[in-house]
């Protein structure tokens, strides 16, 4: 009785479930794709003078100004330099930390990475403030350097804060991202059995360093490429840390867009939208490429 009822009900249930699934998928596209498309359409319209308070019909003046301005390319280049350097430094740090970790895994239910989770609790705004308070010309380190007789004036302290090369931003961002990468690489090395592969390489005569560099690191980097790509973009488009720690020139893209957008002179707004669109285009292409790189299954599973 019950089973025949179930069989009769199944097609109706399946139809209802399919309908619900389509509705849920539509909700996802509407709630995330909708605002993104709307934003892009509006930014295009504003940047070509089709909408906005000062719109006078179709004009590519803002685009010409943005594309012809050296500052635009310096800003983009600087953003990608800072993003790449921050990621590079933190990747290097994470790989060194994992190379130095003992092979024995932590007991189940306990993570020997617990201290690495503490910096994850730090918001970028707080990281920027602490960088200023520690590393600034009048920061804690400068005061200690004075007390030790190493410097006489605040200006004598070699502070990375507000440096034109973005050193302060790179140091602060790398310090924030390092714990994420340590945890990510640790997780990936377990999934891809990198310890075991390294041990196999050592059995075949490789030194521990060679096994790590020639077996572990390439596998880890390949597996982490999609995540690292998104991290690179997030670091290149960061706002709070460059705002607090960065120099007035060159600035990172987010700061430049916010400056153009927030000025009293509304005529710079179309340029802000054009610059934002330019970055959105580059970032979307980079994200699409990074996400297409799939982690290959570990060799041990393919055999």
């Amino acid at each position: 009785m019950t089973s025949s009822n179930t069989e009769r009900r199944r097609p109706a249930c399946r139809r209802r479930a399919d309908g619900l699934g389509i509705a849920r998928l539509a909700a996802i596209w509407l709630l995330i794709g909708g605002p993104l498309l709307l934003s892009a359409a509006f930014m295009v319209a504003y940047s070509v003078g089709l909408t906005g308070l000062l719109a006078h019909g179709l004009s590519f003046a803002a685009w010409a100004k943005v594309l012809g301005d050296r500052v635009t390319w310096v800003t983009l280049g600087f953003s990608f330099w800072v993003g790449g350097a921050s990621l590079g430094v933190s990747m290097l740090g994470a790989l060194i930390v994992l190379a130095r970790r003992p092979a024995r895994a932590a007991p189940p239910g306990r993570s020997d990475l617990t201290p690495w989770f503490l910096p994850i609790a730090v918001p970028p705004m707080v990281a920027g403030l602490t960088a200023v308070l520690w590393l600034g010309n009048a920061g804690a380190l400068a005061r200690w350097a004075y007390a030790l007789g190493w410097i006489r004036r605040p200006a004598d302290f070699p502070s990375p804060i507000y440096s034109t090369g973005g050193l302060g931003i790179i140091v602060t961002q790398a310090a924030l991202v390092l714990p994420f990468l340590v945890v990510l690489f640790d997780r990936l090395s377990r999934v891809h059995r990198i310890r075991e592969l390294g041990e196999a390489a050592r059995t075949l005569g490789a030194s521990p360093l060679a096994a790590w560099i020639r077996v572990g690191v390439p596998l880890l980097l390949r597996a982490a490429t999609p995540t690292l790509g998104v991290y690179f973009l997030a670091l290149s488009g960061a706002f709070e840390i460059p705002l607090l720690v960065g120099a007035t020139y060159p600035t990172m893209l987010s700061v430049r867009v916010a400056q153009l957008f927030g000025q009293f002179d509304l005529s710079t707004r179309p340029q802000a939208y054009a610059l934002a669109l330019l970055y959105a285009l580059v970032a979307s292409v980079c994200a699409a490429v990074a996400l297409r790189v799939r982690a290959r299954p570990p060799r041990t599973e393919r055999v």
């Binding site: 596209w29 995330i32 794709g33 605002p35 993104l36 709307l38 934003s39 892009a40 509006f42 930014m43 504003y46 909408t51 998104v230 973009l233 997030a234 290149s236 488009g237 960061a238 706002f239 893209l253 987010s254 700061v255 867009v257 916010a258 957008f261 802000a272 939208y273 934002a276 970055y279 959105a280 970032a283 979307s284 980079c286 994200a287 699409a288 996400l291």
Partner: peptide, 20 residues
């Protein structure tokens, strides 16, 4: 890609686009 885009784009770019 759609789900990762809000993170890949800068929050400022997202905010500027959504503001109007």
């Amino acid at each position: 890609l759609l789900l990762h885009l809000p993170f890949a784009l800068s929050p400022v770019v997202l905010g500027v686009g959504l503001e109007y």
